[in-house]
Amino acid sequence: MIVFATSDKGGTGRSVTSCNLGYRMCVKGKRVAYLDFDFGSPTAGALFEISGAERGVPDNAGLHSYLQGKTGVATRIDVRDSTDRHQLRKLRTRTGKLVLLPGDSGGAEFKQIDNGIVAKCAQLLLEVDQSFDVCLVDLSAGRSVAMELALKATALPQLAERMVRWLVFHRWTRQHIIAAHGLVRGEHGLLDGGKRVGHDPDALLDRVRYIRTAVPVLNDETEGSGPQAAWLHEQHTELKRLALTNKVGASALLGETPVEPILQWREQLILDIDVDRKIANRATVEAFEKLADRVLDPASWKPV
């Protein structure tokens, strides 16, 4: 399965949520490859806390250079062997594999995409898809060259029959809901761009699901009382209405993650030990686990 993670805006939690999804799938025994296609800002190494790869890898050894043909092999880093987090390094039994394919340090977006780069990308995705259970590809935010490259590569015959999914991340705010709609359905968006390179827009839309991030939990402990509580409920109801109008409502929703202080202050993998130490919330881990299950469940991808 090839899963592209995208968002129209930065700061949606796309990368940190995708990294946590990859980790939770690994814990479930899956072999997971994480490809950092955020070419201009490759920071997956920092999320996995891998020294020397916080902003990609040097010496033209990253994905940007590989796709340009500057190197014949894309660097692969075993996260559990290379991470600085000793609790993660100790995970050995009954777990799968988690491998990072990092970008280039000091990398940048492609100025243009030629047929050679598209073919190289398709070859890479096919090879990784054949070697791993899940290939998670973190794209740059917005209508990026990375999204264009992903659409062109997956339109080629060698990938046309592969299981490809698209996760669109947005925060639970008016601006992010509207932006998510535009990214998928707007001019030069996912469907429009896909159609231009040979995708069937209806079939492509069936492969799209949304993930809401940093969603406040409304209950007696968090919402207060009186006018503030009434206002919070009113805003929550209005956002649901806006999401429905913009076709990012419940029918196309894969799941959501709650507001999590540890992710606001320090973007990282949340391990069970973080919950045991009471520095992370159990509800966030449960949300990641549910999302991982739903990504893997064919029933989640039935046409809506």
Rank of each mutant, 00 (worst) to 15 (best):
R196Y: 09
T173W: 03
A292R: 04
G29E: 02
D202I: 13
S15H: 10
D206P: 12
C19E: 04
A179L: 12
W166K: 02
I117D: 12
V57G: 09
A46V: 13
L269Y: 07
P298G: 05
T95I: 15
D129W: 00
P42C: 13
G249P: 05
R24L: 03
F48A: 14
W265P: 01
L156N: 01
T284M: 15
G198T: 10
T71V: 14
A280L: 15
T83G: 01
D78W: 08
T257S: 04
V79N: 03
L183R: 09
V275Y: 09
L136F: 08
R24S: 04
L291R: 03
R80N: 09
L35E: 02
N246L: 05
A5S: 11
T173P: 00
L35K: 01
W231H: 10
Q130C: 06
F110P: 04
P298I: 11
L126E: 08
K302F: 07
I279P: 00
P201R: 15
L159K: 02
P258Q: 02
P227K: 05
P261M: 00
H176Y: 13
E187Y: 14
L139C: 06
V128L: 08
G226N: 05
D220I: 07
R212F: 15
Q87Y: 10
V164Y: 01
A146N: 02
G10W: 08
D202A: 15
L21A: 08
Q268T: 06
P201H: 14
G56N: 12
Q123H: 08
S82M: 10
G62S: 11
L183Q: 11
P261G: 00
D297H: 06
L101S: 08
P261H: 01
C135E: 02
Q264N: 07
G255R: 01
E286D: 14
V27M: 14
V184Y: 12
